[in-house]
Nucleic acid binder design. Structure first.
Lengths: 357, 357
DNA sequence: ATGAAAGCGCTAACAT
DNA sequence: ATGTTAGCGCTTTCAT
């Protein structure tokens, strides 16, 4: 017979009832040690593995959690899922991954498939749509946590976009820069808009004028990083420092600067990337740690399983500014030097990180 | 009531029996168009999503496939899973991911959990252990495909390790190199051993002596790439060309060469990495396309579902040698030049690839 | 073209 | 401490 062993086979083999087997498997109540041993032996011999389908059919909630992210091809999200998977494994849960590809419809299909179809024990997702009303019917039974982007009504794990940007741009100001570029604004993403607001705040407080020419903007989803970098460097009063608003832009900018032999231009990137510490000078980065975010999200999921009572809120995960060289380059000396001489010590957490991935 | 709608609710709402609803959902046989329309309407209104647990309990095989890989934190495997996920989505299947972390026991636990516990419709895995006898009981019902590393008895999707290495090392020989380093041999991995054998074959055919000093070897899982590179460059007769046997070694080697200002040393890497085309010169790579491998694996899984009859075999996915500069650097001219002058045209497929990831 | 009833493997009452 | 029984939501015979 090719039929896989079921609880009945174990029961028969151990000479007990199926309920006793169930009790042993689920570590329920007290089973006589001798009986338990016999059952465990039978399980071993037969190679019995409980059928999760039957289990979740009965209990209404399964042995897997669902994760919906932009795309697994994005290293940040891949690392995020990896962190979640590690935690899930320890908890005896499996992980169902699905990509939204930043499409609201696909996001809806994937979420419903997980929550209604697979009856997952919880969902962690990087929200795309502004609202997710279709989840309402399930949220009483399935905890849902948002990551990377915040959504009202959900526990949301995010990094302090605005605050981290403030520290980075302030560092440029302290180094005497007056022409600071915001490289790749994209109004479709609220996280990037929050970084933009931090940028503006620092300029205002420092008394520096805001120059729209210093902002590169992605329109219709595309921006040629190379020519955009050339434009900023070719202005009458060129940019002397670059804040790259996301890892993709940072990679493009780094490549562009290297190709134009301008790699000694000051630069800080939001988001770490694999070769940031390989190129010279190293690219200073705001480190958005996917493991920290993944762990926090999983933690929230577990907490929600216990008490679904308390109000959902935003959970802010700390970032670090990795000083690798490119962010510490001072402004070139100009004839009309007006910058203050007070080189304020930044309160930024600093760290170095070895081993490129 | 917070109960999610079931097939019964749909049946009641549409005024038909549950079997008719089942038929509509599964696109079975011919249902009267009018009836079908009524059922579809009811499904729409109620937001009905079939319960996969019940479905797989009944049918014995579920709506998900399982993928077990080394680690999602490895960009190659993340991209591989991404490719698989895309294909699965089109087929209406979900993806359960699990990591082995290169541990045989964990591999076994994960595989059994997927196959016996979740009753997945198929498994794609990057094998760790040499044998997987515990899968035998399930393979008649669950198709299993190996990727990246080959295993007898399984359909295995691999790239032509030896052949691709031969092309790369031959290119060095054609450019006059006589001191070619094999950077990072690791005897634990059969793929890397196959690359090693290709390296040896080229040397033998070219009449070049094999010098063990030119082989860097990972022992006990660790190798300091930087000092190892220095050693090879500091030999009495130093290495003039490097074959990096894997992406991790390639990253370490690139960093080491740049730090020592030796970036104009000839180098070809097995496996592409994100900044290979950003540094100068670009690092020539043997491109091991995860999307190609993922697609081939999924294809095999589907084929196995149809006919499990034919003998499992190895499926070799093509590679390309991406000429980016570092692999085309000729040997420095020496006083005792003995190399033939015939610069053989290589049969290598060449391509350029834009956009660093 | 449609329906009734049995049962997949397990857990949760409710015995004993 | 252990056993009996019902039923989760669906698909699958077998009728009609």
């Amino acid at each position: 017979m090719i039929r896989r062993p079921g609880i009945k086979d174990v029961a028969a083999s151990a000479g007990v009832s199926i309920k006793t087997v169930s009790r042993v498997v689920n570590a329920e109540e007290a089973v006589h040690p001798e009986t338990r041993a016999r059952v465990l032996h039978a399980i071993q011999v037969l190679g019995y593995v409980p059928n999760t389908a039957a289990r979740s059919l009965k209990s209404g909630t399964g042995g897997a959690i669902g994760v919906v992210i932009d795309s697994l091809a994005d290293p940040f999200f891949a690392a995020l899922v990896s962190a979640i998977e590690t935690r899930a494994l320890a908890e005896g849960l499996s992980v169902l991954v699905a990509s939204s590809n930043l499409d609201s419809d696909q996001e809806r299909d994937q979420l419903l498939s997980l929550v209604a179809g697979h009856q997952v024990a919880g969902v962690i997702f990087a929200p795309v749509a502004a609202e997710h009303p279709y989840l309402d019917a399930y949220r009483t039974v399935t905890p849902v946590v948002a990551v990377d982007r915040s959504r009202a009504g959900f526990d949301s794990i995010v990094v302090d976009d605005r605050g981290a940007t403030v520290l980075a741009v302030q560092q440029f100001v302290d180094l005497g820069h007056e022409r600071i570029a915001f490289f790749d604004r994209d109004q479709r993403f609220s996280t990037i808009e929050r970084r933009m607001s931090g940028y503006l705040d620092v300029l205002r407080e420092a008394g520096l004028p805001f120059d729209p020419e210093l902002v590169s903007e992605t329109v219709d989803g595309s921006l040629d990083y190379r020519s955009e970098a050339d434009r900023l460097l070719g202005l009458d009063r060129p940019a002397t420092a670059f804040f790259a608003s996301n890892a993709k832009a940072a990679i493009g900018l780094t490549a562009a600067l290297h190709r134009s032999h301008r790699q000694h231009t000051a630069m800080i990137a939001f988001g770490d990337f694999s070769f940031a510490d390989v190129v010279r000078p190293g690219v200073s980065c705001i480190d958005q740690d996917p493991f920290l975010i993944g762990n926090a999200a999983f933690e929230r999921l577990l907490a929600r399983r216990e008490s679904s009572s308390d109000e959902p809120r935003e959970w802010i995960v700390p970032t670090a500014l990795l000083q690798r060289g490119s962010g510490e380059i001072p402004a070139p000396v100009t004839t009309s030097e007006t910058g203050t001489a007070t080189a304020t010590e930044t309160a930024t957490a600093t760290a170095t990180r070895g081993g490129a991935r």
